[in-house]
Amino acid sequence: MFTVLGPWSDALRRSRLHQFVALVLAAVFISSCQSPDTLATELHADITRTMATSMQFVWTDQELSLTQTVSGQYADAYRYHLLYVANGVPAWEEVVKDDAVADRILDPAAVARYWSTQRANVTIPSAQLAGAALLAHHWVVDTTGAPSVPTVGQEVQEYKDDPFDQALLFLSDVNNLISLAPPPEVRQYRADDVTPVYKPTDDPFPAPLKGSGITRYDVYEQPLPVVQTASPGAVPAPPTISNFTKIAIYVKNGMVVEIRLTTDPIDQLQQLVNNYHLSLPKNLSREGQEAFAQTAIQRLSIQTGTLPFLVRQETLVVEPLPRGTSIAIPSGAVPAKLSFLHPS
C-alpha cells in the first residue's frame, strides 16, 4: 500500500513506522514491567492455596526406565486414599484416616525397588504378622500408626521414604524450585510472546486450551554455573537439578490444575560438554544423549549428597475432590503394627 502513495506517503510511512516501533517497544516494556514479583508471589499463593484444598490427583513420574504414578483422593493431611503404580502395575495402596493407617502391598518387588532408589532403610519383616499379611497382599491396619504429616523445608528433590510422600510433597518441591529460579522467577505464557521463558523450539509444554480459563506460568531456568577462576582447565561448580528443569504451571481461578516439569539437559548438552570438558560420543540417539548427560551429571555432582540426577518428566493433574467423598479404612484389614513402613 505504501508503494502507491507519493512523496507525502514516505513521510507518513516513516511516521507510522516510528509509531509501530514505539508501540512494539511500549508493549515489550509494559510486558516486562508486569510486576514480576507480584506474579511470583501470586503463583506461590495459588500453590499454597491448592495444597490446602481437598483434591483428587494423579502424579506421574516418567524416567528413562521407569514410569510411576500416585493417584488418589486427598481430603486433608489426615485423610487420604492413594495408589502407587509402577510401570503400569499397581504396587502399593494406602489409606490414612486420622490416627489409623492401612496398607496393602500388591507388588513387593516394585516397592523394594522404590525404597532402594530412595536409600530408604525399609524392609518388610516376613516373620511378623504385618509383614506376612502384606506379602500375601492383604490389607493391614494400624489403628494408631498414621504416618506423620510430610513436610519439606527449602531443600528440593530430597529422598522420600515412600512414593506417597513424594507425590504429596510435589507441590512443595515446585514451590521451592520457583524460589530457586532467577528473577523474576516466572512469566505468564503467551503464544506470541517475543521474549518467552522457553523458546518455541525448546518448549516441551502445551499451550492452555483456548476458552478454558486456564493460565499457564513458566518458570525461568537457572543458568549453568560458570567458571569462577581464570586457571587453565578450571571447571565450574557442579550443575544442580534447577539448571535443567523446565516447569509450566497451569492455574484456573487461583487454583493449580496441572503442573508439568521436565528435567532434561538435552537443550544444554553442548554447553555442558564444553564447560566440563566432557567427551560426547558421536551419533548418539536422543535417548543415548539423555543417558550420557544423566551419567555425566551424576558423576559431577556425586559429592552433593542429593538425589541422583535423573532425566524425567513429572506431571501433576489436580481436580477438586467431589462432594460427599468419604475416606474409609478398608473393612476386613488385618490389625497389626505398621511402624516399619512409616519410620518417624
Binding site: 490446602a52 484444598t53 486433608d76 493431611a77 489426615y78 504429616v149 513436610t151
Partner: peptide, 12 residues
C-alpha cells in the same frame, strides 16, 4: 507446619 483441617488452618 500448617495443615488445613475441618476448615481451619492448624499449626503443628
Amino acid at each position: 507446619s500448617e495443615v488445613r483441617l475441618s476448615g481451619h488452618s492448624v499449626y503443628l
